[in-house]
């Protein structure tokens, strides 16, 4: 087996096992660790696809930012007294059935589909992405800023203390 393939399966395994661990672990800290494994696995897959910018962004934003924040929130929240049972699994049976159905369907489609195999041409993508965002894709890029603004404002509305007006 070529090294590339071995590395691919390693990363894929990390992603899948980690993702499964998030809902299945009873301890919320281990759920966060599962998320870490899933995100690192996906970042590795990006590297294998020579999506360098995406891989670095995944590391910086999701692992460096979001995940660290989640872990801090878990550790610092005084409300979670019994960390052991903080993550209750509900609807295990229906979830398993749904998973079996969609999983089978996805595997079936993946095997059945005529994949087009092309050789990877590794080149740096950051320049293209930057030009794209300020060129052909400027409009969606700008609309995304409205999404972020709305989210920011809304997060403040939901999180702030109630202000009584006099």
């Amino acid at each position: 087996m070529p090294t590339n393939l071995v590395v691919f399966y390693l990363f894929a395994l990390a992603a899948v096992v980690g993702a499964a661990g998030v809902p299945m672990s009873k301890n919320i800290f281990w759920s966060a660790m599962g998320l870490l494994s899933a995100l690192v696995g996906v970042a590795g897959l990006y590297v294998l696809l020579s999506a360098d910018f995406l891989a670095v962004t995944q590391l910086l934003v999701y692992i460096g930012g979001v995940l660290v924040l989640i872990i801090f929130a878990v550790m610092l929240t005084s409300q979670i007294k019994e960390i052991e049972v903080s993550n209750q699994n509900v609807g295990l049976v229906s979830g398993a059935i749904l998973f079996a159905l969609t999983g089978t369907l996805l595997c079936f489609v993946a095997i059945w589909a005529p994949w087009k195999v092309v050789l990877l041409q590794s080149h740096e993508t950051t320049t293209d992405i930057g030009n794209g965002l300020l060129g052909a894709w400027l409009l969606p890029f700008e609309v995304t800023s409205v999404v972020l603004l709305a989210t920011l404002i809304g997060a403040i509305v939901v999180a702030r203390k109630e202000i009584k007006e006099d």
Binding site: T144, V147, G154, V158
Partner: peptide, 22 residues
């Protein structure tokens, strides 16, 4: 892409509006 971003703008604002009655 514009469909997706439009849907997200609309939905995110809607989630927050629902949550605003604290």
């Amino acid at each position: 892409l514009s469909l997706l971003i439009g849907i997200e703008t609309m939905s995110l604002a809607a989630y927050l509006l629902v949550a605003s009655w604290r």
